[in-house]
Design a protein around this nucleic acid. Structure first.
Length: 274
DNA sequence: CACCAGGCAAGCC
DNA sequence: GGCTTGCATGGT
């Protein structure tokens, strides 16, 4: 396939590091020149910010401009979003820290499986598992002398056994993935209730799937990091582990309303990097 | 060595 | 319904 290029000029609120390292995605990796290369759907792209321009290069089945506008959420006004959620000095600082974050428009299936894998796991290891899973069961795509692998579809995982998953290092999540592959009907996934029926999907994973795979910005996924930052900033309990997650979600709802999810990303990236 | 990681399911009461 | 416990693995 032929390489395409798309260049974005005079475009603010786009910082590759912030976008790819804020924890929303697992398949983008930094190159030596500071750019990032990743694969999503059947597209392999390299994203580089240089002299204020954003340069997208890679192989896409469709027009690269269309692909990028959708995937990178380029038509949304993040300046306006930031204004709305800057309700105090804490959020001002968090936003300043991850100023170039955008919420990617990721494939729902990939997000579901990826965040089931994320449970009680750390980001480097999640990335490793997803790479091994893709290499074993996805389709190869060559770009710039390297081979990338698409995220395996439901059909491609259908005959994979629990033991196979275990060998890839999925740990106790092997059976969750197996069950979900064999019971899910993607066409009927619309609400949080639908997600919670899936094996391996609880409150936090469901919220991540809604935020990253369904464009629902009103959810506020609470993991250990977010609980930590919300307790440090607002709740100030001596026993952070005991702070009720429902209380945190309610507090976030009061503060950030329908933009909870974006606020959560700024907070997560800020607290986790610092 | 113990502890932790973008938690969840199962088993208790 | 809410609370506790076990869980695979790799990194500090």
């Amino acid at each position: 396939m032929k390489e395409q290029t798309y260049i974005l000029k005079n475009f603010s609120e786009f910082e590759p590091k912030h976008i790819f390292e804020c924890g929303q995605c697992f398949r983008w990796n930094k190159e030596e020149d500071g750019s990032y290369t990743g694969i999503f759907n059947e597209n392999v792209l390299n994203v580089k910010k240089e002299n204020g321009q954003i340069i997208f290069k890679g192989i896409c089945k469709q027009d690269i401009k269309k692909v990028c506008i959708k995937y990178f959420d380029l038509e949304r006004d993040y300046k306006k979003i930031k204004r709305k959620i800057t309700i105090d000095e804490y959020m001002r600082e968090a936003i300043a820290y991850g100023s170039g974050i955008r919420i990617l428009n990721q494939d729902l299936w990939e997000v579901i499986i990826s965040f089931i894998i994320s449970a009680n796991n750390n980001i480097p290891r999640i990335k490793g598992i997803i790479e091994r899973l893709s290499k074993a069961y996805g389709k190869p795509i060559k770009y710039n002398g390297k081979t990338y692998y698409t995220f395996p579809t439901k059909d491609e995982l259908f005959n994979v056994t629990i033991e196979d998953y275990r060998k890839l290092g999925l740990g106790f999540r092997d059976k969750y993935i197996y069950k979900t592959v064999h019971t899910i009907d993607l066409e009927t996934i619309n609400t949080k209730e639908d997600l919670l029926k899936l094996s391996g999907v609880g409150e936090k994973v469901a919220d991540c799937i809604m935020l990253f795979g369904m464009n629902k910005f009103e959810v506020f996924p609470v993991d250990v990091w977010v609980r930590r930052v919300m307790n440090d900033l607002y709740i100030k309990s001596e026993n952070e582990e005991k702070v009720n997650k429902e209380e945190i979600r309610k507090l976030a709802k009061e503060k950030y309303n329908d933009l909870c999810g974006i606020a959560q990303q700024y907070l997560f990236y800020w607290k986790r990097e610092a």
